[in-house]
């Protein structure tokens, strides 16, 4: 086993601009995958509200399956196997693959958040809305969603951070974010320590302040409402590797 060699500042200076540039790709991918997950999560949530038992069971199963299998393999499936699927298969570039793969994977978690938000609204609110003769649409837009969404914002924020930390996975299908850039740099000059440490520090510097922000937001939300918002996961975070 090799010994750790000495830290070399000139390598840091050399690698920094490359990794800094790649950071924007990582951040862009985070936003794209996250946006896809937010929208697709909505789709799951609404399909699951359709009152057909077999459909609900099927959707629950599919979601569970997506949640409990590795996103890495899901990326491989989309990248390598999807083009071969008869009729619907098309070849997808690494970026589209990643948006679909991570987006769908995380949408199953996001959907649970939406659901917990909706379920946290007291039954009496539905009843009061009925008693005041609101239409179904008005009940959702005026009464239920304005109460269901705010308590979920900190949790959704948490998932943005989790998504950010999951983006290096896309290096496996060739998206040139920070990790792949460091890896390539390492392979070229055989100096992995500085670039990989830089990548780690970039992640820490971006995610730690964000998570403190989310915590603050959560405390603020808890104070704002009469009741304790239900479904909060109390700052617990999950990862989805």
């Amino acid at each position: 086993m090799n010994m750790i060699r000495e830290w070399d500042w000139s390598t840091v200076i050399d690698a920094f601009p490359l990794i800094f540039k790649a950071m924007w790709i990582t951040l862009g991918m985070t936003i794209a995958c996250y946006a896809f997950a937010l929208v697709f999560g909505l789709v799951w949530t609404f399909i699951r509200r359709v009152r057909i038992k077999p459909l609900q069971r099927l959707i629950s199963f599919i979601m569970e399956f997506i949640r409990t299998t590795p996103p890495l393999v899901q990326l491989y499936f989309i990248y390598y196997a999807w083009p071969l699927v008869p009729y619907v298969g098309v070849t997808l570039d690494p970026i589209t693959t990643s948006i679909l793969g991570l987006g769908i994977h995380f949408s199953t978690y996001i959907s649970e958040i939406y659901r917990s938000g909706i379920e946290s609204v007291d039954k009496g609110q539905w009843e009061a809305a009925t008693a005041l003769n609101f239409s179904t649409r008005q009940k959702w837009t005026k009464i239920i969603l304005p109460q269901a969404i705010p308590p979920t914002i900190p949790m959704l924020g948490n998932y943005l951070i989790i998504m950010f930390k999951e983006i290096p996975l896309t290096a496996a299908v060739g998206v040139g974010g920070m990790l792949l850039t460091a890896q390539k740099y390492g392979a070229k000059f055989y100096e992995y320590m500085e670039p990989l440490t830089l990548v780690a520090l970039f992640f820490l510097l971006l995610s730690y302040p964000s998570s403190i922000l989310v915590q603050k937001l959560e405390q603020k939300m808890n104070r704002r409402f009469d009741k304790k918002p239900g479904g909060s996961n109390n700052g617990k975070e999950v990862t989805a590797s």
Partner: peptide
């Protein structure tokens, strides 16, 4: 028909005034 509930069921995200105007305006 109108109803007053045991547990009030006021809308917590609205002011008192808004609680009383949201239905007449929208319904």
């Amino acid at each position: 028909i109108g109803m007053v509930f045991q547990h009030f069921n006021l809308f917590p995200h609205m002011t008192i005034l808004k609680n009383c105007t949201v239905a007449p305006i929208n319904v």
